[in-house]
Computed example of a mutant assay.
Amino acid sequence: MAKSSEANEMSFLDHLEELRWHLIRSTLAVVIIGSVAFLMKDFIFDTVIFGPKKPDFPTYGVFCKLSKMLGFSEAFCGTEPIFRVQSRVMAGQFSAHIWTSIWAGFIVGFPYVLYEMWKFISPGLYEKERKNSRGFIFVASFLFFLGVLFGYYVVAPLSINFLGSYTVSKEVFNDIDLSSYISTVRASVIACGLIFELPIIIFFLTKVGLVTPEILRKYRKIALVIVLILSAVITPPDVASQIVVAVPILILYQISIYISKVVLKREAKKASKNVRSS
């Protein structure tokens, strides 16, 4: 089946013009949502951004009980703030307010940004490919938000608790700069959101023939080592915290292998049908 006639008739400049409008609409969506986030300063900062810093953050209660059950240290059972956050630049708080609002606009508006990207790409696909990818936006958005929640409720608190309380000497006090603190929370959230897109990435890489289940199984041990190193870097140096971070990523890797296997089976069925019809 031929691709859409509109996609065939459009010139290179037409494609650039189409891409420009998709980018403009995506940017407008981020700006509009970011403007709303800008007006919700108290909620965004006091509740969301500084939530993982507070001792009553729900994650710390769960990890406190888990640490006691497993007999590890009770580092998550503190009752006092771990450190203070300060701003040493004249426009530091205003700049943090603007950029945090923009990132909030991107996170909340991610499904629409993905939708605009899909609208640009989909006309170049075959009709069957578009039908088979109808749930792409929903699945990709679900995985992204799942990763964001994992980053916010697991990775960010672990990183903040460990890095904020780590000391080399009693003579040194941990007064963390505002931009450094926000970048830690933002990196944890965005990175996990993108990492959780692994099954989607493997799906498309398998479709274009760059990845197979055999390749993924072959390098599974290497992937395991990379995941353990990553979890050791971004979490406190105790076994329980590293396992909490590593397990979901390994599950995603295993799911990706299964997805790659399913895609290859479907491609093999299509190829056999085409051979029979010819």
Rank of each mutant, 00 (worst) to 15 (best):
Y60P: 04
G61K: 13
V62M: 02
C64Y: 12
C64G: 14
C64E: 13
C64Q: 14
S67E: 12
S67P: 05
S67T: 12
K68A: 11
M69D: 06
M69K: 15
L70D: 00
L70R: 09
L70Y: 01
L70Q: 02
G71I: 05
G71L: 01
F72T: 15
E74I: 03
A75H: 01
A75C: 00
F76P: 04
C77K: 13
C77E: 12
C77W: 09
G78C: 00
G78M: 05
E80N: 13
E80M: 10
P81W: 06
P81I: 07
P81S: 11
I82K: 11
F83Q: 09
F83T: 04
F83V: 09
R84D: 05
R84K: 11
V85F: 05
V85Y: 06
V85S: 04
V85C: 04
Q86T: 11
Q86Y: 05
Q86R: 15
S87G: 09
S87F: 07
R88M: 07
R88W: 00
V89W: 03
V89Q: 10
M90G: 08
M90N: 12
M90I: 15
A91M: 14
A91Q: 11
A91I: 12
A91C: 06
Q93M: 04
Q93P: 00
F94Y: 13
F94V: 14
S95I: 03
A96T: 07
A96S: 15
I98H: 08
I98D: 03
I98F: 10
W99K: 12
T100N: 13
S101D: 03
I102S: 05
W103S: 11
W103N: 10
A104R: 01
A104M: 14
G105F: 00
F106N: 00
F106M: 06
I107W: 05
I107S: 06
I107G: 02
V108H: 02
V108M: 09
G109Y: 00
G109S: 02
P111M: 04
V113W: 03
V113N: 10
V113S: 09
V113Q: 06
L114N: 10
E116H: 04
E116R: 15
E116W: 01
M117R: 01
M117D: 00
W118M: 03
W118F: 05
W118L: 06
K119H: 11
K119G: 07
